[in-house]
């Protein structure tokens, strides 16, 4: 398992590179025109408050998007559960396929059949939640991923952190868990001088931090690319001088492609998050050799 943050690299990178290089040619023109080319920036992720500004109850656009995502997700799932029958209809089949995907392809494949059932609920809930918050990034009028503001990824990672440490302690006791995670067996003892600090960082710091940042960074990058493409399209088609208009078609196509790509990334990041959660859980509860 790689521990570095997993950007959906090659393709996204290329897309972004081309987008950026075209932007480089446009920027000076935009500056000259003084017109409304909206440059994507991280200010997007700190929109003005709607209610309770300045308090801990502050609600801005992103919180609102999260509420919508929760409402929609829960409505769909509760209705699906209410209507769940022995012989499934089409909608139920879809829901069950996703549930099965998490149960079989994530939980059972990684944790094994005996240990999986204990954690299926956790993995399923996290998978559905992350997907719901991710997918808002490409839904018109919501247009921002609920997970693109660090708080939610942090809370998710914290939840997972508590679960995998709790699982390890429950399986081996505090000492056993520390021993099995800090002193991996089968290593000549002098290497522990190197290995133990690394493992400590790994288990207690890097895992939750990378879980949170990976998810947030992917969503932020996706949102920036989308904003870039669509605002460039808007600018090129309606505000740029005649010769540049055809490039608008290009950026529009780019935006279209990135939208599809973001749908994929939304699912992929939810999947990566639960796979890593399952891996951490399995490393915690793993029998000592």
């Amino acid at each position: 398992m790689t521990r570095t943050s997993r950007h959906p690299t090659p393709r996204a990178f290329d897309l972004q590179e081309t987008a950026l290089s075209s932007l480089a040619t446009i920027l000076p023109l935009a500056a000259e025109g003084e017109s409304g080319f909206h440059k994507p920036s991280i200010a997007e992720f700190f929109p003005p408050a709607i209610w309770f500004e300045g308090t801990i109850f502050e609600i801005n656009r992103i919180q609102f998007v999260r509420f919508v995502a929760v409402a929609v997700l829960l409505t769909i799932m509760v209705i699906a559960a209410r209507r769940a029958r022995l012989v499934p209809r089409r909608g139920q089949n879809m829901a069950e396929m996703l549930l099965d995907f998490v149960r079989v392809n994530v939980a059972q494949d990684i944790l094994g059949k005996e240990k999986a059932p204990k954690y299926v609920a956790l993995l399923t809930t996290i998978f559905f939640a992350i997907f719901a918050f991710n997918i808002t990034g490409v839904i018109p009028f919501l247009n921002i991923a609920g997970t693109s503001l660090i708080g939610l990824p942090v809370m998710l990672a914290l939840w997972v952190y508590v679960m995998y440490i709790g699982a390890g302690v429950r399986a081996h006791g505090v000492g056993g868990f520390l021993k099995s995670s800090l002193f991996p067996p089968g290593v000549p003892w002098p290497l522990y001088v190197l290995l133990t600090p690394v493992e400590f960082l790994q288990v207690f710091v890097l895992r939750p931090v990378t879980l949170a940042i990976r998810l947030m960074a992917n969503m932020v990058a996706g949102h920036l690319m989308l904003v870039l493409c669509f605002s460039a399209t808007q600018f090129l088609l309606f505000e740029a001088s005649g010769g540049l208009k055809p490039f608008g078609a290009l950026t529009l196509a780019g935006g279209f492609a990135i939208t599809l790509f973001e749908v994929f990334v939304a699912a992929l990041q939810a999947y990566i998050f639960v796979v890593l959660t399952a891996v951490y859980l399995s490393q915690s509860v793993e029998d000592e050799h």
């Binding site: 801990i56 929760v70 942090v154 998710l156």
Partner: peptide
């Protein structure tokens, strides 16, 4: 506020999933 509302939405989802849906 981000932490607060994130916790709220996650708890809501968690409760509904653990108690009802799953």
């Amino acid at each position: 506020y981000d932490i607060l509302w994130s916790s709220v939405v996650l708890i809501v989802i968690g409760v509904v999933f653990y108690k009802l849906v799953l």
